Deep mutational scan, measured.
Amino acid sequence: NLRWTSEAKTKLKNIPFFARSQAKARIEQLARQAEQDIVTPELVEQARLEFG
Rank of each mutant, 00 (worst) to 15 (best):
E28G: 02
Q29M: 11
E45F: 04
A8K: 00
V44E: 00
F51Q: 06
V39T: 00
A47Q: 03
T10E: 15
A25M: 10
R48I: 15
W4M: 01
D37G: 09
E28D: 03
T5L: 06
L12M: 08
K24S: 04
F17C: 15
T5E: 05
D37C: 09
E7D: 09
E50R: 07
R20H: 05
A8I: 01
Q33A: 11
A47V: 15
E50T: 08
R20C: 09
Q46E: 07
T10A: 15
T5D: 05
I27S: 10
G52R: 13
K9C: 15
E50G: 06
R20W: 04
L49R: 13
R48S: 10
K11S: 11
T40D: 02
K11L: 15
R32L: 10
V44G: 00
D37V: 11
K9E: 13
F51C: 11
T10N: 12
P41C: 08
A31D: 00
A31Y: 01
D37W: 13
D37I: 11
E50C: 09
E35L: 13
I27G: 02
K24N: 02
K24M: 11
T10Q: 15
N1H: 11
P16T: 02
K9I: 14
A25R: 12
A34Q: 12
L2R: 02
G52V: 15
A23K: 02
A19K: 12
L43E: 01
R3L: 12
T40Y: 05
A8P: 00
K13Q: 13
T5C: 04
R48E: 09
K13T: 07
E35Y: 11
Q46V: 09
D37R: 10
R20S: 03
R20L: 07
G52D: 12
V44Y: 02
T10S: 13
E35W: 08
Q33D: 13
I38R: 05
Q36D: 04
F51G: 06
Q46S: 07
L43P: 00
E45L: 06
N1K: 13
P41M: 08
L30S: 02
T10Y: 09
I27M: 02
A19Y: 14
E28Y: 02
L43Y: 05
A23S: 03
R32P: 01
K24F: 07
A34R: 12
E7S: 08
V39G: 00
F17A: 15
T5S: 10
R26K: 06
K13I: 06
